[in-house]
Every structure is written in C-alpha cells, then in structure tokens.
C-alpha cells in the first residue's frame, strides 16, 4: 500500500526587491570581492602552468616576456626533455618512490581500516569504547604532531631511511576507520548482516560477502584522502631520510640516501640550492639571496615543470574526485 501523500503548501510569492542604487552597489562590491579572492587563488596556479611553456629565466631580472604569457608547446616539450634528461636530480626514481610509499600506505590504510571500522561497528568487546575514543583523538590531532616521536622511535630502532619508516605511518589513517565505523553502524547494514547470519554465514563470510561489497564508496574515500595526505607529506620523510637519515651514530655524517627520497623531498632539495646541509654550521642571515636556483642552474620554467610534475598525481586524483569532494557530501558524513 502506498502511503497517502498530502502536501500542504502555502505558496506565498515573494516579489523580488526592486533594484535600487544601494542594492546594486552591494552586488557590485560582492562580486568584486569574489573576483579578487578567485584571482588570489587561481593566479599562482595559472602562472605555474604558463611558466612551464616558456624558455624561462636563469637568473634574477633576466625576465623573458610578461610573467603571465604563454610560451609555446614546443618549449614545453623541450623543458620536459631537460627535466627527464637526468640532469635534474633523480625525478623518475623519486616519483617511483612516492608511488611505492603512498601506494603501500593506502593499501595498509584500507586493508586494516575497513575491517577495524566493521569490527567496531558490529561487535561488542572489551575495550571497544576505548579503541573508538583513541581512534577519534588520533584522527583529530594533526598528523605532524606525531612526526618527531616517530622519528625518535625510528632512530632508537635503527629504522631511519627504511621505507617502512614512512609506509607504516602513511598506513595509519584513523579517519578511515571512523568513516568505516559510521558507515557500517547503520540499521540497514545490521539488517543485512542479520539476514546473512541466519542464512548460515559465519563471521568472515558475512564480512566478505555482505559488508565488503557494500563498502565500495568508503573504500574510494579512504583511498583518495590517504593518498593525497601521503603523497604531499614532507615533514615525515624529511625527518626519516634527511635530517636524521643522513646522521650516523654519535653525530657522524653519512651520505644521504637520495635514491630513497619521495618526490616532495627530492624536488625541494633540488630547488633549494642555497640550502645548508643539515649539519652545516649555521651561516649568518643571508643578504645576498637573489633568486631560487636549482643545483643544475636550470631555468625557472624547468623548475616550475618540476613542481608541477611532482604534484601531478594529486591533481589527477583531485580532479577525478572533484565533484564528490566539492559537493560537501564528504563532510555530510559527520552531520
């Protein structure tokens, strides 16, 4: 039987406000503010994209054309060739490293987080509330707060510069556990699980054949969020591979394992040519800083392309997931 639907609606037409000078001015100001803010957000990215198509400058004040002009596609191809010629660090290796670290982290986050969320949502066991509380606290503290303790731990265990030193923290994604917990903690899922059990499923089969197929939307969410967080992380690999990773025992310096850098770390080290080595004696405040220069002295356009290539996977993921992130539905999970 269909429920009878009676809609009572009082349609009161609100006549649009008459156009006045004051309201016109207000609109003008509003759009001007929006335009200025949009320009603030967009221009650096537009500059980055345009710069990669230009010959680029190699020193300060050797400006080539206006900052926001398009060069040529031919130049873009040339810059690309310079970038991957092997002169500019080990960009290919660093990209592969980032893919390995972030990819493994995501796999762990999904593989451990989804069952954990399921376990928290459907079973009652001693320590459940404590675990839930710890997960929520861990999800709400900034991940950077754990970096130094993690580095100190890895130092004490002799795990610095080991891929596991970054992969395991990337795989720890309490927000994913919380999302999975909320997702499975609904009457609909409970009903389906009860049906599966009365049909003779054991606990594993109920999870594998009922809960897991239901969880594809949150799998996507966990993958996207953990991937972006891992790929863009700088502080953790900096601590593990550079600051402490180049330190031998008792303050001796050993060669940094640049071939293990993720792309964020490699690119930054490549660009910061004026950078002091982690153990160099601090220099007095530099007054001669003219411009950023790469160790290879490549033009700014190649440096711009280097930055763009280093974040390209994140941009791709964001654009694919854009509709769904910008819709705010993701945040709707909490409400």
């Amino acid at each position: 039987m269909r429920p009878l639907n009676i809609s009572l609606r009082f349609d009161v037409s609100v006549t649009p406000q008459p156009w006045t000078l004051a309201s016109g001015l207000r609109r003008l100001v509003l759009w001007a503010v929006l335009a200025v803010v949009a320009v603030f957000f967009a221009v650096p990215i537009v500059w980055l994209l345009l710069e990669t198509t230009r010959a680029g400058q190699t020193g300060p004040d050797s400006q080539v054309g206006a900052p926001l002009a398009f060069g040529s596609l031919h130049q873009l191809v040339q810059n690309w060739q310079v970038l991957f010629s092997g002169l500019v660090g080990q960009i290919g290796t660093w990209l592969a490293n980032s893919a390995l670290y972030s990819g493994s982290g995501v796999l762990i986050a999904v593989g451990l987080g989804v069952p954990a969320g399921y376990g928290l949502a459907t079973f009652d066991f001693f320590g459940r509330r404590l675990l839930l509380f710890a997960t929520m606290i861990a999800m709400l503290i900034p991940s950077t707060a754990l970096v130094l303790p993690l580095v100190l731990e890895a130092h004490s265990l002799g795990m610095l510069s080991s891929p596991l030193a970054v992969i395991l923290p990337y795989g720890f994604f309490p927000f994913g556990v919380y999302i999975a917990y909320l997702y499975f903690n609904t009457p609909r899922v409970f009903g389906l699980l009860a049906a599966a059990r009365s049909d003779g499923c054991n606990e594993w089969q109920a999870f594998r054949h009922v809960a897991l197929p239901l969880s594809t939307p949150i799998l996507g969410l966990v993958v996207v969020l953990d991937f972006i967080a891992s790929w863009t992380n700088y502080f953790l690999p900096w601590g593990m591979y550079l600051a402490f990773g180049c330190a031998g025992s008792a303050g001796t310096t050993i060669a940094c394992q640049t071939t293990r850098y993720p792309v964020t770390l490699g690119v930054a080290q490549q660009l910061m040519a004026g950078a002091p080595a982690p153990f160099a004696i601090p220099q007095p405040a530099s007054v001669t800083l003219q411009s950023l220069q790469m160790q290879t002295n490549a033009p700014a356009s190649v440096e711009a392309l280097l930055i763009l290539v280093s974040v390209a996977p994140v941009i791709v993921v964001l654009v694919i997931a854009q509709r769904w992130i910008a819709s705010g539905r993701l945040q709707g999970i909490f409400v």
């Binding site: 080539v64 972006i228 992380n233 964020t264 930054a268 411009s291 950023l292 440096e303």
Partner: peptide, 22 residues
C-alpha cells in the same frame, strides 16, 4: 589543496620573487 605541503611553498617562493612573479 593539490599543492599542499612543500609544493605550495616552492610555488610561493617563485611568486614572491621579483622579476618573474605574477
């Protein structure tokens, strides 16, 4: 947000560099 972390800092170092800055 796609440039979160180190990439945004490097981009801003270019943006803050007189000469080629937008």
């Amino acid at each position: 947000a796609a440039l979160a972390g180190s990439a945004s800092v490097m981009l801003w170092l270019f943006v803050l560099q007189p000469g080629d800055s937008p």
